[in-house]
Amino acid sequence: MDGYFGSYVLVAALLAIGVAIVAGALLANRLLRPSRPTPDKLTTYECGVDPVGDGWAQSQVRYYVFTYLYVVFAVDAVFLFPWATVFDAPGYGLTTLVEMFVFLGFIALGIVYAWRKRVLTWT
């Protein structure tokens, strides 16, 4: 359990333990719980009134615009985090700083554009 990937092996092991515990709980629950389904019990609850129509409602596309924006900023974070760690190391001086400024400037243009196009305004 040493070397660079040692910790990641540990994470994988932890994941396995977590899945095992949850699966065990669900299995025990399955063995212990009563099961007497009736048609009424198996109806979708929704808001307590008998469901009307298909279960999947159509909804506005504006939710997915945010995922676009998210991708932009997630990429931004992927570049920012490593930059932040080497920023003050010797050999990375003002140039590194200015480069990141330019990059963040472009990113900021993106959000300003979305703002101007009223993507961020809800109504």
């Binding site: 279960g55 409602a57 939710y63």
Partner: peptide, 19 residues
């Protein structure tokens, strides 16, 4: 869940948490 409210809640959550 195949329920309108559940679907809306899920979408909202996705947009909110990623933001």
């Amino acid at each position: 869940s195949r329920s309108p409210y559940a679907l809306l809640g899920g979408l909202r959550s996705a947009a909110q948490v990623v933001s």
